[in-house]
Amino acid sequence: MDISIRQIRYFIAASEAGSISRAAIATHVTQSAVTDAIKSLERQLGINLLERSPSGVSLTQGGRRFLKKAREIVTTLDDIPHSISQPDTQVSGRLRLGVSSMAAGCCLGAVLPAFTRAYGDVKVSVIEGHRPELESKLLSGGLDAALLVVSNLENTDAIAHRVLSRSKNRLWLHAGHPLLDAQAIHLRDIIDGPLVAWRNEELSRQVSRAWMDANLVPQIIFETSSVEAVRSLVASRAAMAIICDTMYRPWSLEGGRIEARELADRCMTTDLGVAWRRSADLPAAVRCFVEVCDNAQAGGMK
């Protein structure tokens, strides 16, 4: 059996996008390249990984099992550059790192293990908090660096930052929703909802600003801090939602299908990144942590 990483990446892209065409766009290849790679993979494994339909593709039972292994393989391969690289100098001391709730789930796992492997003599402590609290602690010296939504930073004169991932805010719809066939979707098309809002300080600012810029007041039937609750309500046809692509998954916990579509209205991106207090003499541990974050971003961190 000679399974290639290319086949695995195309399969992951198709399973997450729920569509061969969208997987092709995401991986920058033709649809036929994705189709041929997945069919070859299925022949080698001797099972069907995807069920095809006019509306897209969905995972079979075997496909769900293989997807878990495929993600483990890709994670291991992506980690190789970090695991074999050695720091130029011995760095010690401490790194007090703050993380927002979104960053904790989206990028902490990509950068913290890489940093601790490369700089094992640095004592790292991590605390979770809201953006205003993290900004305040960066300015007062209570934190050395923070992972958070940097597009919401207020004290940019005193706090430097790097963007690690930029995510569009898109409309989530259930499979079969009439708007899926629309050539363009505007906020005015969904003002009557029903809408469910994800109650998250980092995201809600961009979405609220978009509604204000359009001079519209949406009909929100429910606000929740649980993104899984949002997925469940959208997939079950109870509501629509506007959430950044970072949090998008094509399936709810119950197995319901979720589609995402771009909005024609200007809806600011959600930019996750690393931030630190501006200083002419940046501590070595902070400088090295920012470098690790840069490497994670260059490696295609989502």
Rank of each mutant, 00 (worst) to 15 (best):
Q183H: 05
G129A: 11
N200C: 14
S151M: 05
K123G: 13
L112D: 05
R131M: 15
L112K: 00
S167P: 09
T156E: 11
F115S: 01
D181R: 02
T116S: 04
E202P: 12
V196K: 02
R170I: 07
L195M: 10
F115M: 11
A184D: 08
G141W: 08
L180N: 07
H186L: 09
I159Y: 12
K168S: 07
V207E: 10
R205V: 11
P178F: 05
L180R: 02
P194F: 07
K123M: 10
Q183E: 13
R162N: 04
A114G: 13
I190Y: 00
E133G: 02
R170Y: 07
P178V: 00
H130W: 13
V124F: 08
E133N: 14
L153F: 13
W198Y: 15
L139S: 10
V149I: 15
S167C: 08
M212N: 08
A210N: 09
D144Q: 00
L134M: 10
S208N: 15
A210Y: 08
P194S: 07
F115P: 02
E154H: 14
H130T: 05
H161I: 06
I190F: 08
Q206M: 10
V149E: 02
A145Q: 03
A146H: 07
D144Y: 07
L139H: 12
I127S: 05
V124E: 10
S167F: 03
E135A: 04
H161T: 08
V207S: 06
S204Q: 15
M212R: 15
I191A: 07
R170C: 06
K168G: 01
D181C: 01
P132D: 11
I190M: 03
Q206T: 07
P132C: 04
S151Y: 09
L180A: 00
V163M: 05
W172M: 04
R117E: 14
S167H: 06
K123P: 06
V126T: 15
L112F: 08
S208C: 13
H130E: 15
L138V: 00
E135K: 12
G193C: 06
